[in-house]
Amino acid sequence: MEVKQVNTPEQEESVPKPHFALSYAPWPTRYSLFVVCLAATVLLLMRWGMGARADLEHRQKGAYDASSLGLAAAMSATQADGLLPPLDPAPGHLRPKPGVGHPAYLVDGRVKSLEAKPDAGLLLSYLDDGRAFTMKELFDSCDFFYLGYAVVNEEEGAALVKAYQAHVTRGLDFEDDLPAGTGTLGTGTLYRLRIDLVERLAEAGVRIDPVRPPRIPVFVERPGHYDTPGGWVIYLDRGVEWLPYPGPFPMTEAFIQALEAISPPPSS
């Protein structure tokens, strides 16, 4: 049998007790100087950081607006058998035809008051968290070129520009597909943008890579809004991508210059 030894009181006193001493210390003046220097340094560094971030946030806001624009166009298409709005037949404006589609499209039926205000702009609601916002003059934005027709490369883009100029000269509208030497995805026709265009072309026998289907630009941002050269491109799949300028299609120098020529920026 094992006897456990227990310390006597005298033996307990000799065992070092746990010690954790925290004390009060007066505040040295040099600490105040340190705080002042720290504050100055932080403010200087923040000044630099905010300058660098300003363009980033400007671009981020542009992405936000661009994705809203793409979503609005897609929602308008749901009211038009999948067709996105036609191009404005008035010369000098690469934009959706004014008045097409419900200008106050309500995703969330709770907002009844805006139905009576057709010029209230578009109201969209993210149903997951109930956020909503209005967009003024969304379809009249001079910040974006609206292509109206499906083009995926430089040649097709050039064909679109040529067809546009010809149509405008003759005073025609853009309700139908356009015959062209170099049409959409190698066909002989420039097809109007519609939500299910790629699927319809595939069914019609046009060769489309199922793994990497073509990305068809819908809105192309006019370069020059940001310190970083480039702009946002909204695609038919409602994806939004930043492309540098000059860069890949549709942000090539030739195509943008051609678009600028037929739809010059508004005079300030």
Binding site: L22, W27, Y31, G49, R53, D55
Partner: peptide, 25 residues
């Protein structure tokens, strides 16, 4: 950091760093 004054300075330093990183791109 058992000195409360130094611990306070440390915390201020971290907040300053936070402010700079938050302001950065």
């Amino acid at each position: 950091i058992r000195d409360a004054n130094r611990r306070f300075l440390f915390a201020l330093g971290v907040t300053g760093l936070h402010a700079v990183l938050y302001a950065s791109p």
